[in-house]
Design a protein around this nucleic acid. Structure first.
Lengths: 145, 145
DNA sequence: GTAATTTCTCAAGTCCACTTCAGATCAAGG
DNA sequence: CCTTGATCTGAAGTGGACTTGAGAAATTAC
């Protein structure tokens, strides 16, 4: 039993095989190769992928996810402390996101109440935090905030 | 005073001029043209853009945002009821999103507690809702859920 | 031992959300 | 009136996140 194949990971995570290979190019997983050149994964790679998927669902860009995961040991199984540290940092980001959403919801509630008849004081129209432009390409959701 | 120019909208919303033109191709705004062929906007277009920006920040795709806005009258100012209806629907989506985030956070808390020593029962590794693959292209955040 | 899968590489295609560019025209200030 | 700045169009480029395809080699199933 020399480890899990990419197909195994695909079956167990729901990710497409191509996506797992793509994630490898971003450092999300780092499989070893067997004699025939095929990728072999450890069980800890399942968790790395799961973490990445969860973070993806929150809108975090792959580069940042890879950054978090880079703090884990490469090929050996990470310790409980390793994961706890990462999970805790992740939780902070989730809480920030929930707060931002709740804030937007409250503003929207205000707009429902006021009917937004006065544009100049409308919270929806005047969000406090306009993200600055910083170059070409699409804006992603989970910026440095 | 035949209305606001695209530069006015850009200054007041923080959006790039090019972005506003791009949004027009998706039906977010529908300016009229003056004698010289330049776009002229009404005040209600400010609110349409603000709504779009807010929804964007939540990860909703432009196509869906355009769909919501399509329920508003095109060139005349929408009534208070028009906006209230849209804002209320939007609020439901926000609440759903907050609930999903909170759920993920709770699962993550569970994982911190257990140290994820048992992969097969780890909530993070076994999310109940794996999104099916449905074609090429990137996955967006705010799907049909 | 062969047939059927799976996996390999890597270039190219796709979707979304925009930006950038070029060349021309319109509008506003002095 | 003329210059300066804003706006116009359409095509092409960008970045993130993947998928698709082709041809070859490895694995697994019978």
């Amino acid at each position: 039993m020399s480890g899990l194949t990419i197909g195994d990971l695909s079956a167990r995570t729901g990710l497409a095989v191509s996506a797992i290979r793509f994630y490898e190019t971003h450092g999300i997983v780092r499989p070893v190769r067997n004699a025939g050149g095929h990728r072999r994964y450890g069980r800890h790679d399942l968790r790395r992928l799961s973490f990445a998927m969860a973070a993806q669902r929150l809108g975090f860009p792959l580069a940042e996810i890879a950054g978090h995961l880079a703090e884990l040991p490469d090929h050996k199984a990470p310790s409980r402390e390793d994961w706890t540290r990462i999970a805790a940092g992740f939780r902070i980001r989730i809480d920030a996101r929930i707060a931002a959403l709740a804030d937007l919801r409250d503003k929207l509630d205000g707009c429902i109440g006021c009917g937004c008849l006065s544009l100049d004081v409308c919270a929806l129209y005047n969000p406090a935090d306009i993200r600055g432009r910083d170059g070409p390409g699409p804006r992603n959701l989970a910026g440095p905030g």
